[in-house]
């Protein structure tokens, strides 16, 4: 068992553990932090697979930008304390069991696939130079279209997030109305029947 294999198992264990912590933490801030840990381990896997470009991008985009955005929103809404109302216990169990079943089924289904090796630590397609060549030669159009996607996402985010121009009293009244409406509808929860 070489060093790469030891690294693989260690990273896999940390990834699974931190992923579990993401969904079990009560505090959303902890969830975000555990998720960042997961992303780091996944980046570690990318490094093991010699996909250096993706490893770096993963850290920059996911762990750096996106997760910071999440943290920022959580802080903004002041959700750091445990505000989540308890979900129905049976429903939680049902979800967990359903997920477990899916895992079981998938593992059982793919257990007998033929053995194919993937290379660790060698091979240079994941290097920036090679990926860049392919990207800007064969995938130039999707790349440019991706920029349009970003532009539209930006516009969308601004439009959605923009506060409508209203008088303050109206807005408060509106908010009240909406809130009571939602609460009125709340009792029809799933297993209350």
């Amino acid at each position: 068992m070489g060093i790469t294999q030891i690294l693989f198992w260690a990273l896999a264990a940390i990834a699974l553990f931190s992923a579990l912590m993401v969904i079990t933490s009560k505090n959303p801030v902890y969830s975000v932090l555990w998720l960042i840990v997961t992303f780091f381990t996944i980046s570690g896997h990318y490094l093991l697979l010699n996909a250096q470009f993706l490893a770096i991008v993963n850290i920059i985009v996911y762990a750096g930008a996106i997760m910071v955005l999440f943290l920022f929103v959580i802080m903004l809404m002041n959700l750091s304390k445990d505000t989540e109302p308890q979900k129905n216990k049976w429903l939680k169990l049902a979800g967990a069991v359903a997920g477990g079943c899916l895992l079981l089924v998938l593992v059982a289904a793919l257990r007998n696939t033929e053995t194919r090796m993937t290379e660790l630590g060698s091979g240079n397609i994941g290097l920036i130079q090679n990926l860049g060549n392919v990207l800007f030669k064969e995938y130039v159009v999707p790349f440019e279209i991706a920029s349009i996607l970003f532009l539209s996402a930006m516009v969308g985010a601004v439009v959605i997030g923009k506060r409508e121009k209203k008088r303050v009293e109206d807005e408060i009244a509106d908010a009240e109305v909406v809130k009571t409406e939602f609460h009125q509808n709340e009792p029809s929860a799933f297993l209350n029947r």
Partner: peptide, 15 residues
Amino acid sequence: LLMVISMVLLFVLQF
């Protein structure tokens, strides 16, 4: 939840 359950069933059926 229903989607996941149906997915499981479909996989069971398929494999």
